[in-house]
Write a protein that binds this DNA or RNA. Sequence first.
RNA 1: GGGCGUGUAGCUCAGUUGGUUAGAGCACUGCCUUCACACGGCAGGAGUCGGGGGUUCGAGUCCCUUCACGCCCA
Length: 861
Amino acid sequence: MNSPAGIPDKPSLDGIESSLVAQWETEGVYRFDRSATRDQVFAIDTPPPTVSGSLHIGHVFSYTHTDTVARFQRMRGKTVFYPIGWDDNGLATERRVQNFTGVRCDPSLPYDDGFSAPFHGDVPKDHRATPVSRPNFVELCREITHLDEQAFEELFRRLGLSVDWSLLYTTIGDRARRVSQRAFLRNLARGEAYQQDAPTLYDIDERTAVAQAEMEDRDVPGAYHQLAFHRVDGQGDLVIDTTRPELLASCVAMVAHPDDPRFQPLFGTTVRTPLFGVEVPVLAHHLAEPEKGTGIAMICTFGDITDVTWWRELNLPSRALIGFDGRFAAEAPEWITTDAGREAYAHIAGLAPKQAQKKVVELLQASGEMLGDARPISHPVKFYERGTRPLEIVATRQWYIRNGGRDNDLRDALVERGNELTWHPSYMQHRYDNWVGGLNGDWLISRQRYFGVPIPVWYGVDTDGNPDYATVLVPREDQLPIDPSTDVPEGYTADQRNVPGGFIGDPDVMDTWATSSLTPQIAGDWGDSNELFDRVFPMDVRPQGHDIIRTWLFATMVRSHHEHGTPPWRNAALSGWILDPDRKKMSKSKGNTVTPMHLLEQYGTDAVRYWSASGRPGVDTAFDEGQMKIGRKLALKLLNVSKFVLGFGEPSADATISASIDRAMLGRLAGVVDDATSAFEGFDYARALERTEGFFWWFCDDYVELVKARAYGTQDEAGAQSARAALRLALSAVTRAFAPFLPFVTDEVWRWWQPGSVHAAAWPTADELGTGISASESAAAIEPVSEVLAQVRRAKTEAKVSQRAAIDTLVVHAPDAARTAVEAALADLRDAGSIASVTFVTGEQIVCEVTLAPVADTPAS
RNA sequence: GGGCGUGUAGCUCAGUUGGUUAGAGCACUGCCUUCACACGGCAGGAGUCGGGGGUUCGAGUCCCUUCACGCCCA
């Protein structure tokens, strides 16, 4: 058969990606229409990937899921707002820059405009980080992230994501800084943002405060130490168990459960701490656990979060000793008044907690105030999720945004906002509810870091030269973005910086989540003119990983609730993770990640997308190259069957689809299209793919085999026209139904015979297939025919002859209804099976007796 | 300790409100060089649906209980 013009003789998948990617860009297939009204728009709040290294196969997986939905909605006629951003600010980037270039930021240094980084990768192990100014450090961060961003873009384009690249943003870019600072100032004006001097979880290595969402418990070895406190009434000792004896100098009280009869008589009395001799009260609080240790504990400021609660609720003094450097204060504090106590403190002054513990234990053992030996245990301790040493609690001034952690009304309102979302899958909402319900403080957003969005305020400086944090100077919104370390507040001049009566800039930046919680506002260009924003907000869907519900999803909800009084989206679509073959989560730290580029090259993009799209929403999925092989097979099959079907040529203008089996095939396809459509509407791309794929293989294996002879013209003209028209109609619909999953091969074959891109074509509907045949009628017409065909094939396989081998007689035992269906397709069956004659016998089930034609002995005949 | 999820063939997974004999692909085995496709086609074997109990005419599906694994939180 000669291929018509436009159809290659040897269709191939090789190289189709690069030419189509370029074509899509030129044709603007995925360009957002800024004149569309909100009801015509489908808006996606795409996750901006963290730019700190390389993309791995997990990115391919989840971004493909969203892309299939975007393509579906576009084909349904929506104008799809599908932006992309790079999350490039934050600690992850700072670390990468430090490790890659061998520098560290020292904000006290002046800018050096001739500076260049000592290394670009391969920093020697013995290199001591070169200190650089903050502006130089930020420049390096921008340089390195820019390189990474180019690599990300290349991969995402190669992956065929139908994002509108003209909507690209970065979380450190001007637009993001402007939006982030504007939102903060609005929070501040409404009282949702506030500063507070309070105990804060603090990473002493990174030297920054850490939010509740960023910490995690890790089981670490520790030990119980039994310490004797001395009753002031001289009636003996009170013995406690503690894992942190080094904090003894920070002890402010003892605490036991109010119902505990062992300690009830002691409430209201005082004891003296061992070693330091500080007099502290014995108090009652319900959080004290009678079963834990000796049933009574010491409260230190601050050993853990419970200490903070006790400190607050029992109105205790603050006796913090560990500073920002993670070391004990150099001078003995004023509350230690005895000479012996001050002498003891001198031993731990300036030490880190671990060394201090060792020293305190030695001293206690020497004084006899520690009973017995330390008893090793394993217990959970709070860590910054990126940190290596336990968090300390340090009293500092920080900025917070109210998130319901200290306000039940707000908490309830945020839970209610969660109810306004449709969650996919629905059980993911529990994680949100649990997280919101379990909050125990507001959201700490200030970070003592460098590569981030500056907190856009200054403070007055009093006549003594001390910052007056109560006098907050703010910029106007039209001045944003600003950097308070270089910009000057209105009414001041630059030479008034840091001088009495002048001003001082806030040195901190915002937590990266404080900016990424505004992705809908950043992507939608929220601001003075909301021409774009009003067309896209609230967005239709937030796709994201289930592990960041407590951070990204929740934070975005908080900002939108405060600013807009609405959820930021209608749907939340949570994707699962990629697991390695041992069912462990793929992550960089485990070293089991797989990079995607070679897979895209080896199997083709469509094949990798096929594997991705077969991972069901929210379900963790094993990395499986086998699925990619199947995806490649599928793409090849579509290529080949398209060539075959189109090779029959166009049916005549008056062709009618009259053959029963043709109409039944289209009826089955109509049901599949309906199913795929409703699956997609519920974000279940995997089901849409599965249904379409199931139809497609049946179509190729059975239907095409059955009708190909008729389509060639072996029967009458009407039959040929019917087959050709039905084949083309089905091919068109199937190509479009596969388009969201296999964007390359579908567009390749579509362009052989249709104008424009398949991605600009309409999503198939049951109506256009025009049969009006129900699913059960289709099945009744098809299944007996498929069954007979299968039995004929089996007979040939068992006889070890070719499927082309001729059959003399076929006797079909079948119930009447099945017989009617088989007779309707009898000519096709005889062609497909090379069957000379067929007779029917009434029977319960379909059973075929096959008599093969004798095979000639001589090979030459 | 609380919450959520998962457990179906050697592997990866479908199985919608309970309804014939539990499905698909991979892998494996056999056959077919066939005129769209050998980067192919046709066919085959293979499962006590994690265990136990219950509801029901009927349970992979609903209820209870238990085990294993994973995740989130404390």
